[in-house]
């Protein structure tokens, strides 16, 4: 864990996103008070809480495994945290029933966790956090044990809950779709460091480095190695299969970047089989050879290799394409959507 600094505003939904092992869960556990902090500080409402035990931080956590007590009924699981806080029995019952009603658990209150489905267990875990009415919700990959369909519906349910309750939340996930759809802001981590913080679409549109560019987006951004050159007064990138004119907005940054080598990044959806209507000067063409065609129904993924090299690229094109493996064609790239990265540091240029 190195140099992890971020602030979560009151009522904000912050997502910690990163591949497994990047340290995001450890950060969450440090915030919760479950993991000791060797250096640096964690503050809540301006108070440093490094020495405050977990139970006094007024946070509730939803665990990946749900961590339901197997020997207790759903009711007791929900009430367990309240009993400890000297809350009157009637108030405990009121809160438990309110949360159960909200999460559609009312009929299940007398069941034990082993008699619940995965989705029901997940709701109990969320309910256990809600009844506490804490200052902060902490979520540690709460959807990763659900099947795909249930994950989508539960995700929407969680978003709704959070918007209703408005409690500050920190949500850890390795799923970029969850991060994009749920977070007010995303904090992307890699190898124990924070790489980029920002609103989901801002981060998607302006990745700080090649790691973020590939981690957000599915399929990930295409990265092509090239050299910077000139075509008239315009900067170009010499790629394996030809030159690619670079947008004017990158000119000043390229001026500062004198290495010559560059990584050109372009998202699959910014690569076209047919140039869309509008300003045709925005587009540059690269000759490619089709290696594979994957029709997904709503769209088709095109795996291509750049002519004269083994560099590969993925394009997301319309579903009604007639392209076949082995076809050669020029693909249109939207230069306005091109990103440039420094191969030495992998950081974005411009």
């Amino acid at each position: 864990m190195q140099d992890v600094t971020f602030t979560v505003a009151d009522g904000e939904f912050m997502v910690l996103l990163g591949p497994s092992g990047c340290g995001k869960s450890t950060v969450l556990r440090m915030i919760a008070g479950l993991e000791p902090i060797t250096s640096g500080t964690v503050s809540i409402d301006g108070q440093v809480v490094n020495q405050v035990p977990a139970k006094s931080r007024d946070m509730a956590m939803v665990f990946q495994s749900y961590a339901l007590y197997p020997h207790m009924t759903v009711y007791d699981n929900l009430a367990f945290g309240l009993h400890r806080r000297d809350i009157e029995k009637a108030e405990v019952a009121r809160r438990v029933h309110a949360a159960a009603g909200k999460l559609e658990l009312t009929g299940l209150l007398q069941r034990k966790p082993h008699a619940l489905s995965g989705g029901q267990r997940q709701r109990v875990a969320v309910g256990r956090a809600i009844v506490r009415d804490p200052k902060v919700f902490l979520f540690d990959e709460p959807l990763s044990n659900l099947d795909a369909a249930l994950r989508v519906s539960t995700r929407n349910e969680l978003i709704k809950q959070q918007q209703e309750i408005g409690t500050t939340s920190i949500y850890v996930t390795h799923d970029q779709v969850e991060a994009m759809t749920m977070g007010d802001r995303i904090c992307i981590m890699n190898q124990g460091r924070v790489v980029q913080i920002g609103r989901p679409l801002d981060v998607y549109k302006n990745p700080a480095d090649t790691f973020v560019s590939r981690f957000l987006g599915n399929p990930p951004m295409n990265l092509l190695h090239g050299r910077i050159g000139k075509r008239g007064d315009r900067s170009v990138a010499h790629l394996a299969s030809g030159d690619l004119g670079l947008p004017m907005r990158t000119a000043s940054a390229l001026g500062r970047h004198d290495a010559g080598e560059v990584i050109v990044g372009i998202r699959p959806e910014d690569v076209y089989e047919f140039v869309p209507p509008g300003d045709p000067t925005r587009f540059e063409y690269l000759p490619v050879r089709v290696e594979a065609v994957e029709p997904l129904g709503a769209e088709t993924l095109l795996m291509v290799s750049l002519d004269g090299s083994d560099a590969e690229m993925i394009a997301r094109i319309g579903r009604d394409t007639a392209l076949r493996r082995g076809d050669r064609l020029p693909l249109a790239l939207d230069t306005a959507a091109i990103h440039l990265f420094d191969p030495a540091t992998t950081r974005a240029i411009a």
Partner: peptide, 18 residues
């Protein structure tokens, strides 16, 4: 016994002996 259960109980405010 999964560690999460103990962590959850700690977050819920229970002492080590409890």
């Amino acid at each position: 016994i999964p560690q999460d259960l103990f962590d959850a109980a700690r977050m819920d405010g229970y002492s080590d002996f409890e």
